[in-house]
């Protein structure tokens, strides 16, 4: 799989690939320096800041939304390269691995570092890992819904994404978990056995749901991402939405 991921970015194990990976990591480092580091310093100096947890989510959200968008905006030149549908699907799938999984892995490494360097709580670390799963796999659905629901535009799709049953349950679980973590942090409570089991079970359910959603939707995402007309309609719509928002 990793070899395929490398392949998606050109000649295997070449300097260009390393440069690309560096670009990904550089974005992470940039966001880390911009948001996470000041937040951590503040936290260490000034005790607990629950609102800062949300702030910590921002770079993650940017990163993942960007990845989901990039997945569906592969260069037009690729549609003109001599590849058949199958080869193009493989290319997009490889792109998916490197665009979604690499940031997740890099993010986890950063959070592990954070855990050891800044001694943040294990609970907080757990919440970030959960958020990684939820945000990653959920946002993957939005472009696909964009493509399927041609009449709907922009933020309507986000609502649609959240309203699809599995995704809704998933989001709800994430909210409960984050709420529980915030409650524990606020009252400086340790996890009781029951709470720990509840958190553990909900996390397992959540991960299973993510896999289910991913398995169910990934073939559609790939099929739609490899269709020029759909791909570029989405790009056009997202450009229009960006203009409207701007």
């Amino acid at each position: 799989m990793l070899r395929n991921a490398w392949y998606a970015y050109g000649k295997a194990y070449s300097l260009e690939n390393l440069k690309r990976l560096w670009n990904f990591s550089a974005i992470w480092i940039f966001f880390y320096m911009l948001f996470l580091l000041p937040v951590n310093i503040l936290e260490v100096q000034d005790g607990k800041h629950l609102a800062l947890y949300y702030l910590k989510m921002l770079p993650l959200m940017f990163m993942i939304l960007n990845n989901a968008l990039v997945l569906l905006t592969m260069p037009k030149r690729m549609f003109l390269c001599p590849m058949n549908k199958q080869q193009r699907k493989k290319y997009v799938l490889n792109l998916f691995w490197i665009k979604v999984l690499v940031p997740v892995l890099v993010g986890i490494v950063f959070n592990l570092l954070e855990l050891f360097l800044f001694k943040t709580s294990m609970v907080y670390f757990g919440s970030l890992v959960i958020a990684f799963f939820v945000v990653n796999f959920s946002t993957c659905l939005f472009p696909q819904l964009n493509a399927r629901e041609k009449r709907k535009r922009g933020w309507e799709n986000l609502i649609m994404g959240a309203s699809s049953v599995w995704n809704g349950i998933n989001m709800l679980l994430a909210c409960v978990q984050i709420g529980l973590i915030m409650y524990l942090e606020k009252y400086e409570k340790a996890l009781s056995m029951g709470e720990g089991i509840a958190l553990g079970i909900s996390t397992v359910i959540q991960i299973l749901l993510c896999i289910l959603i991913w398995k169910k939707n990934m073939p559609c995402i790939i099929a739609e991402a490899t269709d020029y007309e759909i791909c570029f309609r989405i790009r056009k719509n997202s450009e229009k939405n960006a203009l409207n928002r701007g």
Binding site: G10, K11, E16, P75, K76, R77, L80, P82, N84
Partner: peptide, 29 residues
């Protein structure tokens, strides 16, 4: 599709190649 595109060269108005690569790297890629 692959055989047709193999025999087809294009010059379009849009930016078709990878902005962050050099010309040589784009050619090789």
């Amino acid at each position: 599709e692959a055989a047709i595109h193999d025999d087809m060269g294009v010059v379009l108005q849009e930016r078709l190649f990878d902005s962050y690569l050099s010309l040589k790297e784009n050619g090789a890629y």
